[in-house]
């Protein structure tokens, strides 16, 4: 009887938890600026700010949108990041992802890389945008 409960319990737990091979992905849209300020959004966490500041010139990084999605192995999920901006992420396994970035219903870029991955570019008034992608499994990858 105990074995049966254990088996059923494990089966149910498996149904709700992240499966082996699933990717729990965190996507953060960030705005980088030196001259601008932003009172309606939080500053990005210190660890990622440090990483970005080491590479890029901007002094302040604001987290605009933060989303988490669980993507099964070989599965694809669409993650809305803004009114006209979304990501389609395919889990290729072993922390590798194919990321299709869509803006205004057009493909901006398609990238295949291992996490953590940052897609970035210039924005107006000498600012920049960053799409930070990492595994949300706690290993920071």
């Amino acid at each position: 009887m105990r074995v049966m409960f254990l088996t059923v319990g494990m089966f149910l737990a498996a149904g709700f938890a992240v499966q082996a091979g699933d990717l729990k992905l965190e996507a953060t849209l960030v705005w980088g600026t030196t001259t601008g300020t932003n009172v309606s959004h939080q500053l990005l966490d210190a660890k990622r700010t440090k990483d970005l500041s080491r590479i890029f010139k901007w002094q302040s990084y604001y987290a605009i949108t933060n989303r988490t999605a669980v993507i099964p192995a070989n599965g694809t999920r669409t993650i809305p990041m803004g009114a006209k901006c979304q990501l389609k992420v395919k889990n290729l396994g072993a922390s590798r992802v194919e990321v299709v970035w869509m803006g205004n219903n057009k493909i901006i870029s398609t990238n295949v890389h291992t996490l953590p991955l940052t897609l970035a570019g210039n924005d107006k008034n000498d600012s920049a945008y960053f799409m930070l992608l990492r595994s949300a499994d706690g290993n920071g990858k």
Binding site: L29, W31, T33, T35, G36, T37, N38, V39, S40, H41, Y62, I64, T65, M81, G82, A83, K84, C85, G103, N104, K106, I108, G121, D123, K124, N125, S127, Y129
Partner: peptide, 12 residues
């Protein structure tokens, strides 16, 4: 495309 999301948060 990103301006829609970031322009909202520019210098205030």
């Amino acid at each position: 495309s990103t301006a829609d999301d970031t322009s909202k948060v520019e210098t205030q």
